[in-house]
């Protein structure tokens, strides 16, 4: 016998949010500062929301702010498809729909307490990581050494420049950056993000290592980490897929048996043994 649910909540119904601030971070990345019109968004680092524009569509976006940021929440959205192109036209005061936050596989904010953390970020992969990074920075005393490694394709694609500058000036964290393709005006490291790993190898042993970047990056990061023989349960991978419905039904985000929208988007490397499609 099937049972009727007493709570008749529509899992597909977005709630309205208002744009408080919209700004381009570079040529393709839009920063949005949003506030829910009703109940504030309840989330933890690593979770994502479904962003809706009426009549245009819905797209999954991972939250860029930390829950310690109390004034609404932040998203960074790359202009790349139908929905995101329309999102880029939003102005302060405009409304959009939000569903979520979704995902039970999230960053280990509790387990990482008292431990060293090494964030490995590639390109727009900085955005989901920023939620955890800012959480750690807002609770700095709870964590050990904090190292942020960031690789960006080229200088013009870098974003959150003020924050990157502030990170590089802090003495209680180590921020190391590189770009894949160097230009004359770039004085920093040149090379992919994995070239930064040897620089911090003495810190790797017991650190919690969250990784987020484009799909192609994961295999190379894991290969680079391989030689240090780290416990796989210390490595956290953000494996975002096409989380179309966000509620474990539509099938688009499935990695083998696992629905990323339900079990992820953040997975422990040690849990991926039965998920050959993951990397």
């Amino acid at each position: 016998m099937i049972k009727q649910n007493t709570v008749e909540k529509d899992i597909y119904l977005p709630q309205l949010a208002t744009v408080k601030k919209a700004a381009m971070l570079n040529e393709t990345e839009l920063y949005l500062h949003l506030a829910m019109d009703g109940q504030p968004l309840d989330y933890v680092p690593g979770q994502f929301v479904e962003v809706s524009l009426a009549g245009i569509g819905e797209a999954p976006v991972t939250i860029a702010s930390s829950p310690t940021f109390k004034d609404g929440f932040e998203l960074v959205i790359r202009k790349v498809g139908t929905v995101t192109n329309a999102v880029h036209k939003l102005q302060p005061g405009d409304k959009l729909g939000i569903r979520g936050a979704f995902g039970k596989g999230v960053y280990p904010v509790e387990e990482a307490k008292g431990r060293n953390i090494i964030f490995i970020c590639g390109g727009i992969g900085l955005v989901p990581q920023r939620s955890f990074i800012n959480y750690v920075l807002d609770n700095r005393a709870d964590y050990g050494d904090v190292i942020i490694l960031l690789g960006t394709k080229c200088q013009s694609q870098r974003f959150f420049l003020d924050e990157l500058k502030a990170w590089s000036q802090r003495s209680d964290i180590q921020f190391i950056e590189t770009v894949d393709q160097g230009e004359d005006c770039w004085k920093g490291n040149v090379g992919v993000v994995t070239t930064l790993i040897p620089k911090i190898k003495s810190k790797l042993a017991s650190a919690v290592i969250p990784v987020c970047g484009p799909p192609v990056m994961y295999k190379f990061v894991l290969m680079a980490l391989q030689e240090y023989e780290l416990p796989h349960e210390n490595i956290y991978l953000n494996l975002e897929r096409k989380m179309k419905c966000g509620v474990g039904k539509c099938g688009h985000c499935q990695i083998n048996h696992s629905y990323v929208c339900m079990d992820g988007p953040v997975f422990k490397y040690s849990d991926l043994g039965v998920m050959p499609e993951a990397i």
């Binding site: 009426a54 009549g55 245009i56 569509g57 819905e58 539509c250 099938g251 688009h252």
Partner: peptide, 25 residues
């Protein structure tokens, strides 16, 4: 039971619908 979700908009761009439709892996 996999499905896709897509929006449609009225001719004067004032109203829309969100629909789900069969998809296939």
């Amino acid at each position: 039971y996999c499905f896709n979700v897509q929006d449609d908009v009225s001719w004067d761009f004032t109203k829309g619908t969100r629909q789900r439709a069969w998809d296939g892996c």
